[in-house]
């Protein structure tokens, strides 16, 4: 427990330093990379806090965000390397694919039998308690609704907040009053008067 706290402390300091660098540095691409470092630190700290599903979500979102931001900061040019594909390179890629396939087969061996959910193997899993006591405790015949609106109400509140914020963002970006930076707003009638689009 004590060691975990030390790990977390180190990660927190690392994340704070990376966040300060991301805010203060001049170069945009370095700032984006520092932001990615913050995300990786967050993901690892979720792992230490025994929340692997959150860690997976965090790392997936972080990778996607990093790709978006790098694409946005690099501008239009995509740097691509050109060179002849030699036989050793091809053999290496086949070898890597085979290694990943091997790990996949090992992982499939460890999966439970088809039709048997994972939580049936663990007697104290929360899913069992939801299925056994869900109708009695919430009165909802649909157990999924009982989970997302009763047991996991905070998650649904967070999702609703995300929707609200995304709508706000879309409306703010596309509203009429963006006259800065030489952006002109034209009404549809005016466009028609000028001879259509």
């Amino acid at each position: 427990m004590f060691i975990t706290e030390i790990y977390l402390l180190v990660l927190l300091v690392f994340m704070i330093i990376a966040a300060i660098i991301a805010v203060e540095i001049k170069s945009l691409i370095s700032s984006v990379i520092s932001l990615g470092a913050v995300g990786v630190g967050m993901s690892i700290s979720f792992l230490f806090l025994a929340a692997p599903d959150l860690a997976i979500v965090q790392i997936a979102v972080e990778v996607l965000l990093l790709i978006f931001l790098i694409r946005a900061t690099l501008g239009r040019e995509i740097v691509s390397e050109k060179g002849a594909v030699t036989i050793p390179l091809r053999l290496l890629s086949i070898f890597i694919v085979l290694v990943i396939l091997g790990f996949g087969i090992i992982a499939f061996r460890n999966l439970p039998e088809f039709g048997k959910p994972v939580f049936s193997l663990v007697p104290e899993a929360p899913s069992n308690s939801y299925i056994q006591h869900g109708l009695k405790e919430t009165g909802s015949a649909n157990i999924i609704t009982a989970v997302i609106l009763d047991y996991r109400g905070y998650d649904t509140l967070g999702e609703a907040t995300v929707l609200f914020t995304s709508l706000l963002g879309a409306l703010v970006i596309l509203r009429a009053k963006t006259k800065k930076n030489g952006t002109k707003v034209i009404n549809h009638k005016e466009t028609k008067a000028r001879g259509g689009e």
Binding site: L174, V185, N187, H188
Partner: peptide, 8 residues
């Protein structure tokens, strides 16, 4: 220039 075409 960027233009935003918008219905009234």
């Amino acid at each position: 220039e960027r233009e935003i075409i918008q219905e009234e």
